[in-house]
Design a protein around this nucleic acid. Structure first.
Lengths: 101, 101
DNA sequence: CTTATAGTTTCCGAAGTATCGAACTGTAAG
DNA sequence: CTTACAGTTCGATACTTCGGAAACTATAAG
Protein backbone atom coordinates (compact mmCIF):
# COMPACT_ATOMS: atom_id res chain seq x y z
CA UNK A 1 0.00 0.00 0.00
CA UNK A 2 2.82 2.39 -0.88
CA UNK A 3 4.53 3.13 2.46
CA UNK A 4 5.17 6.68 3.57
CA UNK A 5 8.92 6.54 3.12
CA UNK A 6 8.56 5.13 -0.41
CA UNK A 7 6.35 8.02 -1.36
CA UNK A 8 8.71 10.48 0.30
CA UNK A 9 11.70 9.10 -1.59
CA UNK A 10 9.79 9.30 -4.85
CA UNK A 11 8.69 12.84 -4.12
CA UNK A 12 12.31 13.73 -3.48
CA UNK A 13 13.29 12.45 -6.91
CA UNK A 14 10.52 14.36 -8.57
CA UNK A 15 11.55 17.45 -6.64
CA UNK A 16 15.09 17.10 -7.90
CA UNK A 17 13.72 17.34 -11.45
CA UNK A 18 11.29 20.12 -10.63
CA UNK A 19 13.69 22.99 -11.30
CA UNK A 20 14.21 23.81 -14.99
CA UNK A 21 17.95 24.32 -14.67
CA UNK A 22 18.43 21.16 -12.69
CA UNK A 23 16.22 19.26 -15.11
CA UNK A 24 18.32 20.49 -18.01
CA UNK A 25 21.52 19.36 -16.29
CA UNK A 26 19.97 15.94 -15.84
CA UNK A 27 18.71 15.70 -19.39
CA UNK A 28 22.09 16.73 -20.76
CA UNK A 29 23.58 13.89 -18.78
CA UNK A 30 20.95 11.48 -20.07
CA UNK A 31 21.79 12.58 -23.60
CA UNK A 32 25.51 12.01 -23.03
CA UNK A 33 24.73 8.61 -21.58
CA UNK A 34 22.82 7.67 -24.67
CA UNK A 35 25.69 8.70 -26.95
CA UNK A 36 28.22 6.80 -24.91
CA UNK A 37 26.08 3.70 -24.74
CA UNK A 38 25.80 3.78 -28.51
CA UNK A 39 29.60 3.59 -28.65
CA UNK A 40 29.67 0.75 -26.12
CA UNK A 41 31.34 2.91 -23.48
CA UNK A 42 30.42 3.70 -19.91
CA UNK A 43 28.37 6.83 -19.71
CA UNK A 44 29.91 9.57 -17.64
CA UNK A 45 30.60 13.21 -18.00
CA UNK A 46 32.34 15.98 -16.16
CA UNK A 47 30.49 18.97 -14.92
CA UNK A 48 31.36 21.74 -17.35
CA UNK A 49 30.17 19.52 -20.17
CA UNK A 50 26.73 19.29 -18.59
CA UNK A 51 26.11 23.01 -18.54
CA UNK A 52 25.34 23.22 -22.26
CA UNK A 53 24.52 26.90 -22.49
CA UNK A 54 23.10 27.22 -18.98
CA UNK A 55 24.13 30.46 -17.34
CA UNK A 56 24.73 29.42 -13.75
CA UNK A 57 27.44 30.16 -11.23
CA UNK A 58 29.68 27.40 -9.93
CA UNK A 59 28.07 27.31 -6.46
CA UNK A 60 24.64 26.93 -7.96
CA UNK A 61 25.73 24.05 -10.19
CA UNK A 62 27.37 22.39 -7.23
CA UNK A 63 24.14 22.64 -5.24
CA UNK A 64 22.09 21.23 -8.08
CA UNK A 65 24.41 18.29 -8.61
CA UNK A 66 24.29 17.49 -4.93
CA UNK A 67 20.53 17.51 -4.96
CA UNK A 68 20.34 15.17 -7.95
CA UNK A 69 22.81 12.94 -6.21
CA UNK A 70 21.02 12.98 -2.83
CA UNK A 71 17.78 12.13 -4.58
CA UNK A 72 19.40 9.02 -6.06
CA UNK A 73 19.21 10.09 -9.69
CA UNK A 74 22.90 10.42 -10.44
CA UNK A 75 26.19 9.10 -9.16
CA UNK A 76 29.35 11.17 -8.83
CA UNK A 77 33.03 10.45 -8.33
CA UNK A 78 36.14 12.61 -8.28
CA UNK A 79 38.77 12.05 -10.89
CA UNK A 80 41.67 14.39 -10.49
CA UNK A 81 40.36 17.91 -10.50
CA UNK A 82 37.11 16.96 -12.09
CA UNK A 83 33.83 15.55 -10.88
CA UNK A 84 32.53 12.76 -13.07
CA UNK A 85 28.76 12.27 -13.19
CA UNK A 86 26.71 9.34 -14.37
CA UNK A 87 23.02 8.53 -14.42
CA UNK A 88 21.83 6.14 -11.72
CA UNK A 89 19.75 3.56 -13.59
CA UNK A 90 17.98 2.40 -10.42
CA UNK A 91 16.68 5.90 -9.81
CA UNK A 92 15.23 6.18 -13.26
CA UNK A 93 13.73 2.73 -12.99
CA UNK A 94 11.90 3.74 -9.79
CA UNK A 95 10.48 6.85 -11.42
CA UNK A 96 9.28 4.93 -14.42
CA UNK A 97 7.76 2.21 -12.26
CA UNK A 98 5.80 4.83 -10.34
CA UNK A 99 4.38 6.22 -13.57
CA UNK A 100 3.48 2.82 -14.97
CA UNK A 101 1.90 1.39 -11.86
CA UNK B 1 17.46 19.93 -28.95
CA UNK B 2 14.85 20.21 -26.16
CA UNK B 3 13.46 23.75 -26.35
CA UNK B 4 13.19 25.94 -23.29
CA UNK B 5 9.43 25.81 -23.05
CA UNK B 6 9.43 22.02 -23.37
CA UNK B 7 11.83 21.78 -20.48
CA UNK B 8 9.80 24.28 -18.47
CA UNK B 9 6.59 22.34 -19.05
CA UNK B 10 8.30 19.13 -18.01
CA UNK B 11 9.75 20.76 -14.92
CA UNK B 12 6.28 21.94 -14.01
CA UNK B 13 4.96 18.39 -14.17
CA UNK B 14 7.77 17.12 -12.02
CA UNK B 15 7.16 19.93 -9.56
CA UNK B 16 3.52 18.94 -9.31
CA UNK B 17 4.67 15.51 -8.14
CA UNK B 18 7.37 16.88 -5.85
CA UNK B 19 5.17 17.30 -2.80
CA UNK B 20 4.50 14.05 -0.90
CA UNK B 21 0.84 14.81 -0.28
CA UNK B 22 0.21 15.83 -3.86
CA UNK B 23 2.10 12.78 -5.10
CA UNK B 24 -0.06 10.55 -2.93
CA UNK B 25 -3.23 12.12 -4.32
CA UNK B 26 -1.96 11.45 -7.81
CA UNK B 27 -0.94 7.88 -7.06
CA UNK B 28 -4.30 7.18 -5.48
CA UNK B 29 -5.90 8.37 -8.68
CA UNK B 30 -3.56 6.20 -10.76
CA UNK B 31 -4.52 3.24 -8.61
CA UNK B 32 -8.23 3.93 -9.09
CA UNK B 33 -7.65 4.24 -12.82
CA UNK B 34 -6.00 0.87 -12.91
CA UNK B 35 -8.89 -0.77 -11.05
CA UNK B 36 -11.47 0.83 -13.28
CA UNK B 37 -9.62 -0.12 -16.42
CA UNK B 38 -9.56 -3.70 -15.22
CA UNK B 39 -13.34 -3.55 -15.07
CA UNK B 40 -13.53 -1.99 -18.52
CA UNK B 41 -14.87 1.28 -17.11
CA UNK B 42 -13.73 4.83 -17.50
CA UNK B 43 -11.33 5.82 -14.77
CA UNK B 44 -12.49 8.72 -12.72
CA UNK B 45 -12.91 9.53 -9.13
CA UNK B 46 -14.26 12.24 -6.92
CA UNK B 47 -12.07 14.13 -4.55
CA UNK B 48 -12.88 12.67 -1.15
CA UNK B 49 -12.07 9.22 -2.50
CA UNK B 50 -8.56 10.35 -3.39
CA UNK B 51 -7.62 11.40 0.09
CA UNK B 52 -7.08 7.84 1.32
CA UNK B 53 -5.99 8.61 4.85
CA UNK B 54 -4.34 11.92 4.06
CA UNK B 55 -4.99 14.48 6.76
CA UNK B 56 -5.42 17.68 4.77
CA UNK B 57 -7.91 20.52 4.91
CA UNK B 58 -10.28 21.16 2.04
CA UNK B 59 -8.50 24.33 0.84
CA UNK B 60 -5.20 22.51 0.67
CA UNK B 61 -6.64 19.66 -1.34
CA UNK B 62 -8.23 22.14 -3.69
CA UNK B 63 -4.89 23.86 -4.30
CA UNK B 64 -3.13 20.56 -4.90
CA UNK B 65 -5.71 19.38 -7.40
CA UNK B 66 -5.45 22.65 -9.27
CA UNK B 67 -1.71 22.32 -9.47
CA UNK B 68 -1.88 18.78 -10.82
CA UNK B 69 -4.42 19.99 -13.33
CA UNK B 70 -2.44 23.08 -14.38
CA UNK B 71 0.61 20.90 -14.87
CA UNK B 72 -1.33 18.71 -17.31
CA UNK B 73 -1.27 15.55 -15.22
CA UNK B 74 -4.96 15.23 -14.47
CA UNK B 75 -8.23 16.35 -15.90
CA UNK B 76 -11.20 17.55 -13.85
CA UNK B 77 -14.87 18.12 -14.50
CA UNK B 78 -17.80 19.08 -12.29
CA UNK B 79 -20.61 16.65 -11.91
CA UNK B 80 -23.33 17.99 -9.66
CA UNK B 81 -21.76 18.88 -6.35
CA UNK B 82 -18.67 16.82 -6.96
CA UNK B 83 -15.44 17.29 -8.83
CA UNK B 84 -14.52 14.28 -10.90
CA UNK B 85 -10.81 13.67 -11.54
CA UNK B 86 -9.10 11.51 -14.12
CA UNK B 87 -5.50 10.90 -15.11
CA UNK B 88 -4.34 12.68 -18.26
CA UNK B 89 -2.60 9.97 -20.30
CA UNK B 90 -0.73 12.51 -22.45
CA UNK B 91 0.87 14.02 -19.37
CA UNK B 92 2.13 10.67 -18.17
CA UNK B 93 3.35 9.82 -21.64
CA UNK B 94 5.45 12.99 -21.72
CA UNK B 95 7.02 12.24 -18.37
CA UNK B 96 7.87 8.71 -19.40
CA UNK B 97 9.29 9.86 -22.71
CA UNK B 98 11.59 12.27 -20.89
CA UNK B 99 12.92 9.48 -18.72
CA UNK B 100 13.46 7.07 -21.57
CA UNK B 101 15.23 9.39 -23.97
C1' DC C 1 56.33 27.30 -3.17
C1' DT C 2 53.15 29.67 -6.47
C1' DT C 3 49.59 29.78 -9.56
C1' DA C 4 45.54 27.97 -11.93
C1' DT C 5 41.65 24.98 -12.20
C1' DA C 6 37.46 22.57 -10.57
C1' DG C 7 34.48 22.25 -7.35
C1' DT C 8 32.61 23.06 -2.25
C1' DT C 9 30.88 25.38 1.81
C1' DT C 10 28.75 29.03 4.27
C1' DC C 11 25.72 32.66 4.42
C1' DC C 12 22.28 35.58 2.74
C1' DG C 13 18.07 37.80 0.53
C1' DA C 14 14.32 37.58 -2.66
C1' DA C 15 10.89 34.78 -4.17
C1' DG C 16 8.00 30.90 -3.92
C1' DT C 17 5.32 27.02 -1.41
C1' DA C 18 2.29 24.47 2.00
C1' DT C 19 -1.14 24.74 4.99
C1' DC C 20 -4.86 26.54 7.49
C1' DG C 21 -9.10 29.40 9.17
C1' DA C 22 -12.72 32.16 7.61
C1' DA C 23 -15.67 33.63 4.36
C1' DC C 24 -17.57 32.58 -0.21
C1' DT C 25 -19.98 30.09 -4.47
C1' DG C 26 -22.64 26.69 -6.65
C1' DT C 27 -25.66 22.64 -6.47
C1' DA C 28 -29.02 19.57 -4.61
C1' DA C 29 -32.51 18.25 -1.30
C1' DG C 30 -36.18 19.27 2.23
C1' DC D 1 -36.57 29.81 1.08
C1' DT D 2 -33.40 27.13 4.10
C1' DT D 3 -30.10 23.89 4.97
C1' DA D 4 -26.35 20.89 3.86
C1' DC D 5 -22.68 19.55 1.00
C1' DA D 6 -18.50 19.92 -2.04
C1' DG D 7 -15.29 22.68 -3.35
C1' DT D 8 -13.06 27.58 -4.00
C1' DT D 9 -11.00 32.01 -2.84
C1' DC D 10 -8.71 35.11 0.31
C1' DG D 11 -5.46 36.27 3.70
C1' DA D 12 -2.00 35.13 6.86
C1' DT D 13 2.00 32.56 8.53
C1' DA D 14 5.77 29.42 8.72
C1' DC D 15 8.78 27.27 5.90
C1' DT D 16 11.61 26.10 1.62
C1' DT D 17 14.10 27.02 -2.51
C1' DC D 18 17.19 29.42 -6.01
C1' DG D 19 20.92 31.71 -6.95
C1' DG D 20 25.14 34.23 -6.06
C1' DA D 21 29.35 36.51 -3.34
C1' DA D 22 33.02 35.41 -0.68
C1' DA D 23 35.97 32.41 1.25
C1' DC D 24 37.50 27.70 1.24
C1' DT D 25 39.64 22.80 -0.23
C1' DA D 26 41.85 19.72 -3.30
C1' DT D 27 44.51 18.61 -7.26
C1' DA D 28 47.68 19.49 -10.88
C1' DA D 29 51.22 22.11 -13.36
C1' DG D 30 55.20 25.43 -13.62
Amino acid sequence: MAGKSDVDALARMFKALANPNRLRLFMNLLEESKLDLAKGRVHDCFLAKLLGGLDLGAPTVSHHVKELSDAGLIHTQREGKQLICSVDPDGIAKLRAALTH
